[in-house]
């Protein structure tokens, strides 16, 4: 590393280097070599595209197969030529998913849980991140370490512990003050939303974001007599739109795709989210592959759409969290 740094200091300016490179040998030889170099480069680019294409197909084909199969009839998906396209587009599977599968109800539950928990999580995380970034107070480093520690406790490992808390939640669902006797917050909307109400990841993102903003606008507002809340609401919140978009996308996606938590908290189909409904649908409609593929697509469609329109923001969020 040190060697490269010293040689960088001795580097001639770029145009000069180019001239040195092309300046050797008679002109004809240069042209011949350049021709071969161009051919080699073209070959390399073609090879790169070939590899990239194969890789891309691995990621794309499963989704295309699911889509194509969902437009077949169950019979032709099971016994027909699976590698062929359907002779006509059959939308009956999507009808089955909603009429027989009860997906309208699951969709409602998923929407309520995801929207409400996203609003709560984004508000709380943005404010908390702002606090960590903009104010110094006793114990800040310690508290922020705790926030980071929660990043290392994935929701799945916490599912049973949190389930026990919901089951024994005091004074809810027939429980006594000591949390015994009833079912607590199980099989309720608050119980379904609990794990998504706060996110250490989101607080972390918000802190990183607000630390990157300058102090001066806030100071100026304070001199002008703004209260602390107005400093946040009028000065920094308008600047934080990209952050809020990213937090919203991640929060919504997390709540929407979660599987284990709704599986253990919802006691019946009336509180099944789409993911849980999909897994029971698959067990019930064994080998009805066209229906099952339609169900799998419906369960993921909203986040696929959000993703396609918001992928720029999502990718920026990932880069923020990992690259820096």
């Amino acid at each position: 590393m040190r060697a490269t740094t010293t040689s960088r200091a001795a580097l001639p300016p770029a145009p000069l280097m180019a001239a040195v490179g092309e300046g050797e040998g008679p002109r004809a030889a240069v042209r011949g070599r350049a021709g071969r170099a161009t051919a080699r480069r073209a070959l390399r680019v073609a090879g790169r595209h070939a590899v990239a294409l194969v890789v891309a197909l691995f990621f794309l084909v499963p989704m295309l197969v699911a889509l194509v199969t969902s437009f077949k009839t169950n019979a032709s998906a099971l016994t027909g030529d699976v590698l062929s396209l359907p002779s006509s587009i059959h939308l009956g599977s999507y009808g089955d998913v909603f009429s027989l599968g009860g997906f309208a109800g699951f969709t409602k539950v998923s929407v309520v849980v995801s929207v409400v928990s996203t609003v709560v999580q984004v508000s709380l995380s943005t404010l908390a991140g702002y606090g960590f970034a903009r104010y110094s107070f006793r114990g800040r480093t310690f508290l922020f370490s705790l926030v980071l520690l929660t990043l290392m406790l994935p929701p799945t490992a916490l599912a049973l512990p949190l389930f026990l808390e919901m089951l024994h939640f005091p004074l809810a669902g027939g429980n006594s003050i000591s949390g015994a006797g009833g079912t607590g917050l199980l099989n309720t909307y608050p119980g379904l939303m609990a794990p998504y109400l706060v996110s250490g990841f989101s607080i972390f993102l918000a802190r990183q974001f607000f630390m990157s903003l300058p102090d001066e606008p806030g100071e100026a507002a304070r001199v002008d007599g703004c209260r602390e809340w107005s400093v946040f609401w009028r000065v920094y919140r308008p600047l934080a739109t990209p952050l809020i978009v990213i937090e919203t996308l991640f929060a919504f996606q997390t709540a929407w795709i979660d599987f284990l938590w709704p599986l253990i908290v919802a006691k019946g189909p009336s509180l099944y989210t789409l993911q849980v409904g999909l897994s029971t649908f698959q067990q019930e409609f064994t080998a009805q592959w066209a229906d099952i593929m339609a169900a799998a697509i419906v369960a993921s469609l909203p986040i696929m759409l959000i993703f396609i329109f918001g992928q720029r923001y999502l990718r920026r969020g990932i880069a923020w969290s990992g690259g820096r």
Partner: peptide, 16 residues
């Protein structure tokens, strides 16, 4: 395209 499966839930992906 490579990032696209991120938009598919684990449950949907597992079923597919």
């Amino acid at each position: 395209v490579i990032y696209l499966p991120q938009s598919v839930s684990f449950a949907s992906g597992a079923v597919i």
